[in-house]
């Protein structure tokens, strides 16, 4: 299912949880794993000098340096790297999100795996600029599913048995559903389809009374049934739920409740307005909070 995986890592503690998942998946499915590290972000104007994301030092990148960093990564992941693993290591220089996307364009992986904030402090000053964070950019623009592992609690990828799929009934959500079905079928898991009814006062501009809420919940459930149930029947087990609240909180709660091993959601690129960039869109919020790996799909 995942023939080629692009694992973007800072090769530091921040990516350790993601690394565990990455190597785990690669081994389980005999995937080719490309370990990709953006070693430095551009600094000092037009010059070739970059800030090394790990040491925070300004360095000139030449062949020796790249070779040295590659070796360093190999050592860092030594315990995972045995013969059974089919892997390559690449390093690059640039703005992390862009370089990850560039690598993805060349490699065309089936899955991108993104560790905890790649290139954290070295990049902090960039994050404040209009570029947005690595996570947002990659989630928005990648051509394949992107798997995020942010919290340590999420770093488990054993035998998957429960998958949660969050929908908002958009076209992209349908695509994400196709993917969720594929995963669930291949791995023989249960799939829980979930929708969160957004009742934040801000959203509706007015407070709904409980009757209205319940009315809407019933409607959403009907929608889920008609849209997804026929296909869900192909699986060994499934469930469908609608809860009300603040969507990203509800879905995290729901996943916990279901003891989900994986959460799949669609990412709406168009909805990122400048406000969202600062607050973090829905998917970003889920990624940051979820207790299991999250896969975001935008195309």
């Amino acid at each position: 299912m995942f023939k080629k995986i692009l694992f973007a890592t800072s090769a530091t503690g921040a990516s350790d949880h993601a690394a565990r998942v990455a190597f785990n998946i690669a081994k389980s499915y005999q995937s080719h794993l490309n370990i990709f590290h953006v070693l430095g972000v551009p600094s000092r104007g037009y010059s070739q000098v970059v800030v090394d994301v790990k040491t925070k030092e300004r360095v000139d990148v030449d062949e020796d340096y790249t070779a040295w960093v590659t070796e360093d990564i190999r050592t860092y992941y030594e315990k995972y790297l045995d013969e059974s693993l089919n892997y390559t290591i690449d390093v690059a220089v640039g703005v992390p999100a862009r370089e990850i996307l560039r690598q993805a364009k060349i490699l065309k992986p089936d899955l991108i795996l993104l560790g905890g904030s790649t290139g954290d402090e070295g990049e902090s000053v960039y994050k404040k600029s209009s570029l947005g964070s690595t996570l947002q950019k990659v989630a928005k623009s990648a051509n394949c599913p992107v798997l995020f592992v942010n919290r340590p609690a999420a770093s488990f990828w054993g035998g998957l048995s429960n998958i949660v799929f969050g929908t908002d009934f958009s076209k992209i959500s349908d695509k994400a559903f196709d993917f969720a079905m594929k995963v669930a079928k291949t791995l023989d898991c249960e799939l829980s389809v979930f929708h969160a009814l957004d009742i934040s006062a801000l959203h509706a501009g007015k407070m709904l009374n409980q009757d209205e809420i319940e009315q809407q919940i019933r409607e959403s459930l009907r929608k889920i049934r008609s849209r997804y149930e026929p296909r869900l029947k192909e699986l060994k087990g499934y469930s469908m739920d609608v809860w009300e609240g603040i969507p990203f909180i509800e879905i995290v709660k729901y996943a916990r409740d279901k003891q989900a091993d994986l959460l799949i959601m669609a990412h709406h690129s168009r909805k990122i307005s400048s406000e969202d960039i600062r607050l973090g869109g829905n998917v970003e919020q889920v990624i940051v909070r979820a207790g299991c790996p999250v896969i975001s799909i935008n195309k």
Partner: peptide
Amino acid sequence: GGGGGFNGIGLFR
């Protein structure tokens, strides 16, 4: 503060 190439020159950082 960084014009004329000043931004990129390590020696004069």
